[in-house]
């Protein structure tokens, strides 16, 4: 399990060469190639083939690669998994997860496919999409069932359909689900990725919703348009001041350790271990500067 920097996950329909080629230029932390909802039934084979070739030969400048496969209940899911695992993407996003049994089965399958492809077993992470009421109830068991499971996300449209309710702009109907996903993800130190904001012309609306996601404890958000990447990254990035504070905390803590000092305080606040760890995490994640290559 891990907790990588995954602020923005940019959906790219896997059947569009121009979009695939440019996917990495928008600054998304993860590129999420989609074989599921954005691909017409008649083009599933073409999209799969195109994605395989693309992942095998294109260089995405070290951006993390995720692939959303079709549900394993559909006739495309298994074929997707069998063709995508050997290429070794970083994450496979699996729709319609509602029980731990599904995850255990998928985990085993992936391990088998990894071995066959000479990949380190456990190399590929899983992101589970929770899209049913049952899935929400089983969240903890689902997360606990596999070491591969490194992120949770919700499929809001399917979930509200499953519950027989309407999706609203206020989003109260998703409050409990979102909170629960964030809570379980935090407990198991994995990412909680919020669902997309569909109106890509409404950047203010996006910002508002993303701020709310962050407040609830999400660590990132999926986006459906390159224009959305900046805002989502910005919301999930600590301010320069927060980064400076973190550096100060780490500096003082290492000094205290060196000189055998006990408790330290920065800006009038006691620094205990969780705060120190949080500071280190911020620096690790956000202080990476691009150097000239």
């Amino acid at each position: 399990m891990n907790n990588k920097l995954r602020r923005s996950m940019l959906y790219i329909p896997a059947n569009n060469p121009a979009m695939i080629q440019d996917a990495f230029i928008y600054g998304a932390d993860t590129i999420l190639f989609d074989l599921e909802d954005s691909i017409a039934i008649s083009e599933k084979d073409a999209a799969r083939e195109l994605l395989i070739e693309a992942l095998n030969s294109l260089n995405f400048n070290n951006t993390e690669i995720a692939v959303r496969i079709n549900s394993l209940d559909s006739k495309f899911g298994l074929k997707d998994l069998k063709s995508i695992v050997p290429i070794g993407p970083d994450i496979i996003r699996i729709p319609k997860i509602e029980t731990k049994e599904q995850i255990i089965k998928i985990d085993k399958l992936i391990t088998k496919l990894e071995r066959k492809a000479n990949l380190q077993p456990g190399f590929i992470e899983i992101m589970a999409m929770i899209e049913t009421a049952k899935g929400v109830l089983n969240l903890e068991k689902i997360v606990a069932s596999s070491e591969r499971l490194s992120a949770l996300t919700l499929g809001a449209e399917d979930l509200t359909t499953d519950m027989g309710i309407k999706r609203t702009s206020l989003g109260r109907e998703l409050f409990l689900t979102r909170s629960k996903i964030a809570l379980v993800a935090a407990a198991y130190k994995i990412n909680a990725i919020d669902t997309v904001f569909s109106d890509f012309n409404d950047l203010n609306g996006l910002k508002k919703e993303t701020l709310q996601s962050k407040e609830l404890g999400f660590t990132g958000k999926a986006v459906i348009h390159p224009r959305q990447v900046d805002i989502v990254n910005h919301v999930f990035t600590p301010s320069q001041e927060e980064i400076e504070d973190a550096k100060e905390i780490v500096r003082q803590a290492s000094q205290a350790e060196e000189f055998g000092k006990g408790v330290i305080a920065v800006k009038g606040k006691m620094v205990d271990l969780p705060i120190l760890n949080r500071a280190k995490e911020i620096i690790n994640k956000y202080e990476k500067r691009e150097v000239i290559k």
Partner: peptide
């Protein structure tokens, strides 16, 4: 053209 927009940024 989102590529142009990203260059512009």
């Amino acid at each position: 053209n989102t590529r142009d927009l990203s260059i512009a940024r």
